[in-house]
Every structure is written in structure tokens, then in C-alpha cells.
């Protein structure tokens, strides 16, 4: 898409690893998944787990409100200047995949205003099973589903479940109450994803988000290596 552009002009145009001043930009990780699966709760838990060791910021893509951004602000997981809400015109999947310009501006402005940053989490508003992030926007993506949304979601597959760099099956504590078979979900996910990793987590009890946080640390180590 860059044709023969030499990138000597101002500001990177898309996924360039270097910023205009030549420094390495922050690693960008996207979090997507259906409505109510626990994306914002996972982002909040990741911020709490990582904020002492990393300089991080969050971009939210709400569907029609600033609810997700306001939840993060209320929970005080990060200072307000490190949280930016992008408005998506009712279509988060457009803003994270088909037309990523508003999100790119949000991540670049965060780096300018509160940087240098190690990590930016880009959260999508709840969307359908085909909503994935553009490679022009994020370096890796996490797809979050939950046991209460139906234990057949891993079997159904779709781009989110099949191709995300990490699949998180959230709310495992609810499995006995909603009749979800975690073993079956794990086997179906394995069949869909081959060697790609899957994490089962409950944020209600230990170890909470620590497996996902460890995965993020590994990605960051690879990014800065």
C-alpha cells in the first residue's frame, strides 16, 4: 500500500515500526470479541498488572457511548490522559479493520502527549465473531469470548476465534452455572487454532489475568528485541 514512498515526510503513515523522530513506537495489541465477554474487564486487569513495570495507554472503540472509556476512568486503572475514546459511527469493526485512520491518530497522539510508551492496548467495542483488527493498526490481537456466550463458539470458529494471536475464554467461574463444558471448548479451540495459544481465565479469582499478562510480556520482549 505504500507504493514507493520513502517515508521521509512527517509522521508515519500506518504500521511503521519507527516514529517520525526515528524512535521505536509502542507495541500495539488489539482486544476484540462479542459484547459482554469481558474485554474491558480484561483491559482493566491488564493495566493493573502491568502499569508498575510498563508505560502504557489504552484506546477504546465504543459503539455509541464512551462507556468503556468511562469504566476505565472510574476504575482509575490509568491516569485519564492515558485513555482515549475513538468514536466509530456504530461500527467498531470498520474502525479497527477497514478504516483505521482514527485509531492510528489516537495511538500516535497518545505517544506524542504521554509517551514514550511501551504498550498501547486498543480495545474494540463488542462486535461479531468476524471482527478482527487490521495489521496496519495492531501488532497482535487477543480475541475474548466467555463461557456464558455459548460453549459452541470455539466450534463455530470465524476469523476472531481462528486467527487471533491469543484466544481468551473468560468467566470460567460461571461454567457450572450456565452448563458450559470447558473441556469441549478447549478441544474445539485446539481444533480451530492448531498451535495458537488459548487461555482460560476468571477475573474473579486468582490467578486472574496473569496468563494473559505473561503473554503480553512475551510479545513485548519480542517487539523490543
Amino acid at each position: 500500500m505504500h507504493l514507493d514512498h520513502s517515508h521521509d515526510g512527517p509522521a508515519a503513515v500506518s504500521a511503521d515500526a519507527r516514529r517520525a523522530d526515528g524512535s521505536r513506537r509502542a507495541l500495539r495489541i488489539g482486544l476484540g470479541g462479542p459484547v459482554g465477554s469481558g474485554k474491558t474487564a480484561t483491559v482493566a486487569a491488564l493495566c493493573r498488572a502491568l502499569r508498575e513495570e510498563l508505560s502504557l495507554a489504552v484506546v477504546t472503540n465504543d459503539i455509541y457511548t464512551r462507556e468503556d472509556a468511562e469504566f476505565l476512568l472510574r476504575e482509575a486503572v490509568l491516569p485519564p490522559e492515558r485513555i482515549t475514546a475513538v468514536e466509530t459511527g456504530a461500527c467498531p469493526h470498520t474502525a479497527i479493520r477497514d478504516d483505521i485512520s482514527a485509531n492510528l491518530e489516537a495511538v500516535e497522539d497518545l505517544e506524542d502527549e504521554v509517551g514514550p510508551l511501551d504498550l498501547i492496548l486498543v480495545e474494540s467495542g463488542g462486535d461479531n465473531l468476524t471482527a478482527t483488527f487490521s495489521k496496519g493498526l495492531v501488532d497482535a490481537q487477543i480475541f475474548v469470548i466467555d463461557v456464558a456466550g455459548g460453549d459452541d463458539i470455539p466450534r463455530k470458529g470465524g476469523p476472531g476465534v481462528t486467527t487471533a494471536d491469543l484466544l481468551v475464554v473468560n468467566k470460567t467461574d460461571l461454567a457450572p452455572y450456565v452448563g458450559s463444558d470447558l473441556g469441549r471448548m478447549a478441544a474445539d479451540a485446539k481444533a480451530q487454532r492448531a498451535e495458537l495459544p488459548v487461555v482460560f481465565q476468571s477475573l474473579r479469582s486468582e490467578p486472574g489475568v496473569s496468563d494473559v499478562a505473561a503473554w503480553v510480556r512475551t510479545r513485548l520482549a519480542a517487539w523490543t528485541a
Partner: peptide
């Protein structure tokens, strides 16, 4: 305008857009 500038520079690179 800013969003279009980005898309335009990636699509039709030019000194004027830079």
C-alpha cells in the same frame, strides 16, 4: 482532514501532501 491526509499520503505519495 487529518485522516484523509494519512490515507492520501499512503495512496498517492506526493511532496505536496508531505
Amino acid at each position: 482532514g487529518r485522516q484523509l491526509t494519512r490515507a492520501a499520503r499512503a495512496t498517492w505519495p506526493s511532496d505536496e501532501l508531505d
